[in-house]
């Protein structure tokens, strides 16, 4: 009996993540994919054909023939979409790199801090989440605008005599993304570094490594899973980011989130915006799969 129960539990443990994937990834994915094969219409919902079971099997077959890949062809015909994808990926990549540059030393410092201090430091990293994300992004407008806090501060110090124009440029977007996603970078790196056996660096130094060399040859490679996890946690949402470029960026910044918004809302073209979303997903799946591979490899070596 107990055996049966434990078998059930262990099976449940496997089922839960798959059920999660099914309900929150695969089913929504197929709904969006199906819409992307339709065409717009003045109707409720605003596309044709709508897939339903009313017509029976022959009805379904009939509707399947009406679906087409036209929307995907359309995306290749106008350079706008390609440019938007490229520019989103570039902005996300630069932001991720900057986040890593700032996040790694923070995580390193936290992991090296006295054990009694760590919970406090951890709390401080998480604390900003207690304020609404939107309010924090709005706060950056007040900081970065031409008469904002930053410019006032710099001009009081006499460092600048003309206000720096940061708001409504790509720099404001980088600042916004780095600020908003920093905890997602710090936490996985911190957890990788914290688990690390300190005697390894000691051994490296005993064997003649300089501290810098010990860091690059021992500490950094061991923290790599954390670095990769952090980078993906920043890069993936940053590619599709809409709020930060909308509020902090300039009008000329082209990002796929904004393109998707205008397809969906201005053009009322749910099918084309669905196609844009599916392609975006494909772009993101590649790094996820890559990450999975690295993770699997790391786990394999760990054993």
């Amino acid at each position: 009996m107990a055996k049966l129960a434990s078998a059930f539990v262990s099976r449940l443990v496997i089922i839960i993540p798959y059920a999660w994937l099914l309900f929150f990834f695969l089913i929504p994915f197929f709904i969006v994919f199906r819409i992307s094969l339709s065409q717009t219409a003045v109707a409720m919902p605003p596309y044709m054909p709508v897939f339903d079971l009313a017509g029976g099997l022959s009805g379904i077959a009939q509707k399947l023939r009406e679906f087409s890949l036209d929307n995907y062809v359309w995306l290749t015909e106008d350079a706008l979409y390609f440019n938007a994808y490229v520019s989103s990926v570039v902005i996300a990549a630069i932001s991720t790199f900057l986040t890593l540059l700032i996040g790694y030393p923070i995580a390193y410092g936290m992991a090296k801090a006295p054990r009694s201090l760590r919970p406090t430091l951890l709390m401080m990293v998480i604390l900003p989440f207690w304020t609404s994300f939107l309010i924090r992004v709005y706060a950056w407008i007040a900081i970065l605008k031409p008469e904002g806090l930053l410019n006032q501060f710099l001009s009081t110090l006499g460092l600048i005599d003309q206000p720096l124009i940061i708001l409504n440029t790509n720099w404001a977007i980088y600042i916004g993304i780095v600020y908003s996603y920093l905890p997602f970078m710090v936490l996985p790196i911190y957890s990788a570094l914290e688990k690390m056996d300190l005697s390894l660096t000691e051994a490296a130094q005993d064997l003649g490594c300089t501290p810098a060399a010990a860091f690059w040859r021992v500490t950094f490679p061991l923290s790599l899973p954390g670095v990769v996890a952090g980078c993906l946690l920043v890069f993936i949402p940053a590619v599709g980011e809409f709020v930060i470029p909308d509020l902090l960026g300039g009008s000329e910044t082209l990002m796929i989130g904004k393109t998707l918004w205008s397809e969906f809302n201005s053009n009322r073209d749910w099918p084309v915006s669905s196609a844009v979303a599916i392609i975006l997903l494909m772009i993101l799946v590649i790094p996820i799969v890559y990450f999975q591979n690295i993770q699997a490899k790391a786990d394999g070596e760990g054993r």
Partner: peptide, 19 residues
């Protein structure tokens, strides 16, 4: 109409983003 709207939105994107 949907087709005209597409032309309009495309012109607008060109104005706003230069693309």
């Amino acid at each position: 109409e949907a087709k005209e709207q597409r032309v309009l939105t495309r012109l607008w994107t060109r104005i706003v983003t230069g693309q």
